[in-house]
Design a binder for these strands. Structure first.
Lengths: 210, 210
DNA sequence: GTCTATAGATCGATAGAC
DNA sequence: GTCTATCGATCTATAGAC
């Protein structure tokens, strides 16, 4: 076995340790919050020892920041290919809304939102980051598309960016609040589709050109 | 001084102690959350001693439940007289939305929402209660009004209750998320009015009968 | 790197004197 | 009821042996 391979194994084991710690920490922080989660839980679940955690992440805050960054990156990845500007306006709105709502209402996203909101006082940049990686990026992409539709005279709205935010909130606002509070019933895919239909109908009859 | 008066003084002092503790606990819990707030802070701020807290509220959870109940009761009180069914539909929507948004986006309401969401796992009934005292009661009242407007054939909506939720979320959804995360700028009264106007316009041109 | 042990600090809850 | 003192538990962070 060459030195190269030996180094590769060593690095990948380090990487595996890091990933195991991150996975355990993600579960712990998202479930119990920053103050409620303990490093003992993380270490018991991930294996390894305290020294490794401190060597890799500095302290509890560093570990917290690392897991938030990871969850943010994964949150709205399915949104990338949601807009096909060649299709009819209603179809694009439906498809985008459905994909956004599904990703944003998923339990992991809801837990991230909950924790980020709770700790936004202690970590101001964290709240801004989660907001930017979630609702804001979705609204920005939809806003760009709506601006194009306005230029093509398919839509009569003053501010496409504001209209995009309003549209997305019509769909996720109430369901997301229920999910945040654990108010049953949890939104089913069928319920999400129903709200999407209602919102698209109101939005388009309010904003689409005849 | 009669026994009655002496008793009255004694009772009012007890009441004053209780109120002082509740006020200090409200500030502490809303700012730091359940796990982050400490009884030392509460006692240092309210005066008195630990024994009084435990005698009155049992333990930390009892104190937490008491302050949540108090804040819930005060949250949407300004909503009581917001609907005047004799006025035009657009005016009622504007007035109701403005009053709801102002109360719901106020810092105290936002902090309550944040804490309730964060602790809804540990205290499931707490989440349901805050949701019921906030968005749900507002949507229910507006939904009743919309149902009346539908009967008078001023409105064409399938489900007035769902329409009410959608309408309120059009207005508060985005601003409330920003407030939750402390994303600047904080919503100004002017900004709230602007969103209300945009939402009423979209909602009515989508749902009002010509 | 991993483990054990422990320092150092904080906090919830109780007991007892006044 | 109020205060002081304190127990017992928990948790972060560090140190040292292997």
């Amino acid at each position: 076995m060459s030195k190269q391979a030996a180094l590769g194994v060593r690095v990948s084991r380090l990487e595996a340790r890091r990933e195991a710690i991150l996975a355990a920490a993600t579960a712990a922080f998202l479930e119990h919050g920053f103050a409620g989660a303990t490093l003992d839980d993380v270490i018991a679940s991930a294996g390894g020892s305290r020294a490794t955690v401190y060597a890799q992440f500095g302290n509890k805050e560093g570990l917290f920041a690392a897991i938030i960054a990871g969850v943010c990156d994964r949150m709205l990845a399915p949104l990338d290919a949601a807009i096909d500007a060649g299709r009819p306006l209603a179809d694009v709105l439906r498809a985008f809304a459905l994909r956004y709502a599904t990703a944003f209402l998923e339990p992991g996203s809801v837990a991230l939102f909950r924790v980020a909101a709770a700790e936004s006082g202690r970590f101001p940049e964290l709240g801004r980051r989660v907001f930017a990686a979630g609702p804001e990026v979705a609204a920005a992409r939809l806003g760009d598309y709506l601006a194009g539709a306005k230029r093509r005279r398919e839509l009569k709205v003053r501010h496409p960016a504001i209209a995009a935010r309003i549209f997305l909130e019509m769909i996720t606002g109430d369901l997301h609040k229920r999910a945040l509070f654990g108010v049953p019933p949890a939104p089913s895919p069928a319920e999400i589709e129903e709200v999407v239909e209602a919102a698209v109908a109101i939005f388009l009859s309010g904003c689409a050109r005849p």
